[in-house]
Amino acid sequence: MMAKSVVWLLGLAPILWAGIRFATDGLGANPIEEALHLAGRWALVLLLTGLSVTPLRRISGWNRIIKVRRLLGLFAFFYACLHLLIYLGLDQGFAWSFIVEDVVERPFITVGAGAFLLLVPLAVTSTKGWIRRLGRRWQRLHRLVYLAATLGALHFYWKVKADTFWPLVAAMVLAGLLLARVPWRRLRRTKG
């Protein structure tokens, strides 16, 4: 399927591009920070892309697009894992006392850790077998992605020092995608 190939390309392009940059200029003066930020940014971008599938389907009526949603979510999880591993290993050198202090005392890390933990059960239950087994509960469980994306956007916003431009763009896109899910028509009907 065409759409799926596009998602594979989109999902693999960032890490391939990072690899090329690493081989040519070593990812700049601070490669660990650069890799950490790249992985984090792509996790959030792919999460938001995944969240845009349903609104896009409703607007365009292109129903088969739903088939790429899982792949987008798994790629988002892949970059979130990379982000976490780079933080734990390369950035912090597995210095657990510092890591625990970070998670406990620094809200921006706390919410980042929370966002990651929320994604874990979603990735685990993304197989056909789990979808069948969980039935209607599957959908309810996977609504956790709204919270995960919100924490991810907050993590990004709290992280920057002064230039909040991109975190605000991410927050606005997320807000739009969440608002698009509010069943406005039904709300109006119950009111009237």
């Binding site: 003066a29 601070n30 660990i32 920070e33 390369l90 912090q92 050198g93 210095a95 510092f98 202090e101 970070d102 620094r106 809200p107 921006f108 709290w158 992280k159």
Partner: peptide
């Protein structure tokens, strides 16, 4: 928002 106990000297991996 972050610890100041350690630093990364550019060009080094370990803090």
């Amino acid at each position: 928002r972050w610890s100041q106990a350690r630093e990364r000297r550019l060009g080094e991996i370990r803090r």
